[in-house]
């Protein structure tokens, strides 16, 4: 197993992965791991490097979202209790697993997350409905100013009792595969907990950083984190994601985004095929 790779190559691969991750809305890790395995990094090392870089991309983005006052800190901090335990368990399972299982799991999660991009979330003008007692007790409510709509939106969360345990699952996937698993988290916040889309995406982002840290700690303890490889990856993914996010906001033509969605779909298939030993190594 040769881990000697050019940091310049790692940097270039990562900047592209961060860019595609942001442009497609899927997150850096989900592109990074297939890309790293394609340049010859063993999948467990790729997962470990990716989850370290997820802390950076998540924290950087969360900083801006939290300052804008859209992220709901209480909902995030409540759900973190579940995701971090899930991430620790997930990372431990990865360390004990064979590579084929990880390729297949990765392919399936990638394709599932890909599918969720097309499920347009429920759009609801009545986010301020009375909630259940547990959710009320947990103080899962808030408001934010929506500049596009030009109004302040007040909302109340729902079904925290369902959202919490589901988040254990999202954390498990994040720890298992070294990704943010943002698509799953947003799905839970949106469908189970009934939050407005902007609150879902930004709160999911906040949770991702702490969840990735829990996973990272297990990978570090197991000796899978190579700082010499992680450094150029982090230095690549962060600006890649920044450029991608900025460009996405200005882009009126969705053709480029659709192109990246096709690329992601193919990456998912490729990971599955490798898991079944039908493609590559």
């Amino acid at each position: 197993m040769s881990l000697v790779h050019s940091p310049v190559l790692m940097f270039l691969v990562s900047i592209i992965a961060g860019f595609i991750g942001a442009m497609s809305g899927m997150g850096g890790g989900i592109v990074l791991i297939p890309a790293l395995t394609l340049v010859g990094i063993p999948i467990k090392h790729a997962i470990a490097i990716s989850i370290v870089s997820v802390i950076a991309t998540s924290s950087g983005a969360a900083s801006a979202y939290v300052r804008d006052g859209v992220t709901n800190l209480k909902i995030g901090m409540f759900l973190e209790m579940f995701t971090i335990v899930g991430a620790i368990v997930g990372a431990a399972v990865t360390i004990a697993s064979g590579d084929a299982f990880l390729f297949i799991a990765f392919g399936l999660v990638l394709l599932f997350s890909w599918g969720t991009l097309f499920v347009r979330k429920h759009s609801d003008d009545h986010y301020d409905r009375p909630s259940d007692r547990i959710t009320e007790w947990l103080e899962h409510h808030g408001s934010y100013h929506d500049y596009a709509a030009g109004k302040t939106i007040t909302y109340r969360g729902r079904r925290a009792w369902l959202g919490g345990p589901c988040m254990f699952g999202a954390g498990f996937i994040a720890g298992l595969l070294g990704i943010g698993a943002g698509a799953l988290k947003v799905l839970i916040l949106d469908l189970a907990m009934g939050l407005p889309p902007k609150v879902s995406t930004t709160t999911s982002n906040l949770i991702i950083g702490v969840t990735a840290l829990a996973g990272t700690s297990v990978y570090i303890a197991a000796g899978y984190v190579d700082p010499g490889l992680a450094a150029p990856v982090i230095l690549g993914v962060v600006p890649g994601a920044l450029i991608g996010t900025r460009l996405l906001r200005r882009l009126s033509n969705l053709a480029i985004r659709n192109f990246f969605l096709v690329v992601l779909f193919l990456l998912g298939i490729e990971m599955l095929l490798r898991g079944f030993g039908l493609f590559g190594g």
Partner: peptide
């Protein structure tokens, strides 16, 4: 410095909590 960078990165969400 590379180690410090990784350590600081991990410390960031931990310190936030």
């Amino acid at each position: 410095f590379v180690n410090l960078g990784i350590a600081l990165l991990m410390f960031t969400p931990f310190f936030r909590v």
